[in-house]
Amino acid sequence: MRSVAKIKDRFKIPGLKSLKVNSNWVFHFDGSGCDGCNAEYIACLSPGWDIERLGFRNTGNPSYADVLLVTGLLDEEAKRGLIEVYEQTRPDCKVVAAGVCACTGGLFDGSKGILSGADSVIPVDLYVAGCAVRPESIIDALMEITGNDTNKGTPEGEETA
């Protein structure tokens, strides 16, 4: 088996790494909770907001992801799941905590069994506040964390572009 892998790996496309493409893959992890932020993220995929036009793509495999989006409350069980997912992501993958429950525990901070935010489990790169977090905020956060111009795709952005 190893011999098979070795043969195939020698084929590399030159210049591939330097190509700049606008394609970001988002893995959405939802802890327990009221599912409000969950629904808001799903709304981002819907016709009202549509992040697909901005180059984002939802994925089911954490190792493909550029962004790990954490929403919802985290308890012990969700913590196990989150650690498993995080371990599969690449080193380059950024973590975004969306919604106050994922940021700090939100309304339920201090309750028994609720961890105070995603940063008690994994290092977080960007926090987005809101209860529930607005789709516009999520999109703003995703654009910022992936290094895109946050005005792109907005009406203002189209005026100034």
């Binding site: 496309i13 591939l16 790494k17 190509l19 493409v21 606008n22 394609s23 970001n24 893959w25 697909e52 180059g55 793509r57 493909y64 550029d66 690449r90 380059d92």
Partner: peptide, 12 residues
């Protein structure tokens, strides 16, 4: 976009 997606994946 599919080409971009695939290239992005390959870059990883």
């Amino acid at each position: 976009q599919p080409i971009s997606d695939c290239i992005a994946l390959l870059q990883k």
